[in-house]
């Protein structure tokens, strides 16, 4: 059995991938138990894989081995500090978890200053563009300033936008923002389509050739009709039950 699994690992992976893809995409028809089943498989596999990789790649080489084999015994204090998080589940001793949470919040708050400084200050500097170079560059800089000032005026809430100059500039700013959001939404559609393309590409260019290759075997023509019959019967009862519940 183990040898058979090892020999057919590639085919099994492709078939499992195809089955999971179809199972997950049944949600497009309607909410159903097939979808929930494959969703739970994914969560379970991901959780189990996460535990293994975290132990194998992180905890074992960076904490356990240095502490037990390399004489770095003081790494035991990392376990003490880490276990402090779990006191949040105790009403009586929750204060212990707040100590370690406070420590991490302090780290994060300190880091935010640096992230803000390094992230946004250069952009403020680069917003001061000179009107120089070719005519197209000057035009580009002029468009940049018009959009920048209009968008900024829209977010100016210190006084009411009564003066026509401020009011109209803020209205133009709103339009510019809408155009920006439209571009972002266009990119979102592109991204979502690409994800679907990825799955379709897998089914068309990996799974279908695999089916074609296996269709040469007589065993395939015995197993496949049986599998299709079983899956269709389960599917029929799952969807019929959900339709009855809806009714």
């Amino acid at each position: 059995m183990v040898n058979w699994l090892a020999a057919n690992y590639g085919s099994i992976a492709i078939w499992a991938g195809a089955l999971c893809t179809f199972g997950i995409y049944t949600i497009l028809y309607k909410e159903n138990k097939f979808y929930r089943f494959f969703e739970h498989i994914f969560i379970g596999v991901y959780g189990g894989y996460g535990v293994y990789i975290t132990w194998h790649n992180i905890i074992l080489p960076k904490w356990w081995r240095p502490m037990t084999s390399e004489g770095l015994w003081w790494w035991i204090f990392a376990a003490v500090l880490g276990s402090m998080f779990y006191f949040m589940y105790s009403k009586k001793h929750a204060w212990i978890s707040r100590v370690i949470f406070g420590l991490f919040m302090g780290f994060a708050a300190g880091g935010i200053f640096r992230e803000f400084y390094e992230g946004y200050f250069p952009q403020i500097g680069s917003s001061m563009k000179p009107f120089s170079g070719s005519y197209s560059n000057i035009l580009s800089v002029a468009v940049f300033y018009v959009v920048l000032l209009a968008a900024m005026s829209y977010f100016f809430f210190s006084f009411e936008h009564k003066h026509p100059a401020v009011k109209n500039t803020a209205a133009a700013g709103r339009w510019f923002l809408m155009i920006g959001f439209g571009a972002m939404f266009g990119a979102t559609v592109m991204g979502r389509m690409t994800l679907f393309i990825g799955r379709l590409n897998f089914l068309i260019n990996r799974w279908i050739p695999e089916v074609r290759a296996e269709a040469q075997s007589s065993l395939f023509w015995i197993i496949m009709p049986a599998v299709v019959l079983i899956v269709s019967t389960i599917g029929y009862f799952v969807f019929r039950k959900s339709q009855k519940l809806e009714a």
């Binding site: 952009q123 680069s126 972002m184 990119a187």
Partner: peptide, 15 residues
């Protein structure tokens, strides 16, 4: 692609 629009200011600033 969803995230790309927000990156253009960083390209402009040379970050």
């Amino acid at each position: 692609a969803v995230m790309s629009a927000t990156a253009y200011p960083y390209l402009d600033s040379g970050q």
